[in-house]
């Protein structure tokens, strides 16, 4: 069932979270609640200096990952170092730059400021999850066409923020665009091109790409 919901989402652009809330909120709540219990039980058992691992399940780009984590592991660390999802970049690791932006239940958040244990039960989307197979998603395509980056290191985060913005505001004004990407610093300074890429991406999305 989860799979079919996701497939539908990618076709319709409908927020899966919203879909869940309206159709299957009971089941979703139950799924969320069972995991924290396990986490608490684990944590209560071990406090060894080197152990202290907690079993967790992370839903990332439509796949469920079961793994043991240290409570101090950030979602960013788990994505990159444990799951090999290197598209999400590490930079300031203090919630001050945006390179690690991911979607958590559809909202843009900093993976560096989110503990992996806290992301349990949420739907996580990284830049890899915005691809359409081997094809670029509309936001990514717009970034290439408008040259909305230079070194590209902050770009994954920018792309994810724009995705979040356009899901919420499909036709943003320039001020909404500015605000929407204001949590993603681009040291190469490509902002003017990013603004244009957002407008282009809005068109591409409207065109059903």
């Amino acid at each position: 069932m989860r799979k079919s919901i996701r497939e539908r989402e990618s076709r319709t652009g409908l927020s899966r979270r919203r879909f869940f809330n309206s159709v299957a909120s009971g089941a979703a709540e139950a799924a969320i609640l069972t995991v924290p219990g396990a986490v608490a039980a684990e944590a209560a058992v071990g406090q060894a200096a080197d152990g202290n691992m907690v079993k967790t399940v992370l839903d990332i780009n439509g796949r469920s990952h079961s793994l043991s984590v240290e409570p101090r592991w950030t979602l960013l660390y788990v994505l990159r170092d444990r799951l090999g999802l290197m598209g999400t970049k590490a930079s300031c690791e203090r919630g001050e730059c945006g390179a690690c932006t991911v979607l958590i239940d559809g909202a843009a958040r900093y993976a560096c400021m989110t503990l992996a244990v806290e992301a349990t039960g949420a739907e996580i989307t990284t830049v890899e999850g915005l691809m359409r197979g081997e094809e670029l998603g509309p936001v990514q395509q717009a970034f290439v066409e408008e040259d909305a980056f230079q070194c590209g290191h902050c770009t994954s985060g920018q792309v994810v923020s724009v995705e979040a913005l356009l899901r919420k505001t499909p036709q943003p004004s320039i001020e909404q665009i500015r605000e929407g990407v204001s949590g993603n610093v681009c040291r190469c300074g490509a902002y003017a091109n990013i603004f244009r890429a957002v407008q282009k991406a809005a068109e591409l999305r409207k065109g059903g790409r």
Binding site: P36, G37, V39, A40, A43, A44, G46, Q47, A49, N52, V54, E70, P71, R72, G95, Y110, M113, T114, L115, V117, E118
Partner: peptide
């Protein structure tokens, strides 16, 4: 640094736990 993690099941449980000086309350975390 290392810490253990507890997801409080009730406000009372959280309040109990947080009364210890080496425990911190986690909300958004930012």
């Amino acid at each position: 640094s290392q810490f253990s993690y507890q997801r409080a099941a009730s406000i009372k449980e959280a309040a109990e736990a947080a009364s210890r000086p080496d425990v911190r309350i986690l909300a958004g975390g930012t």
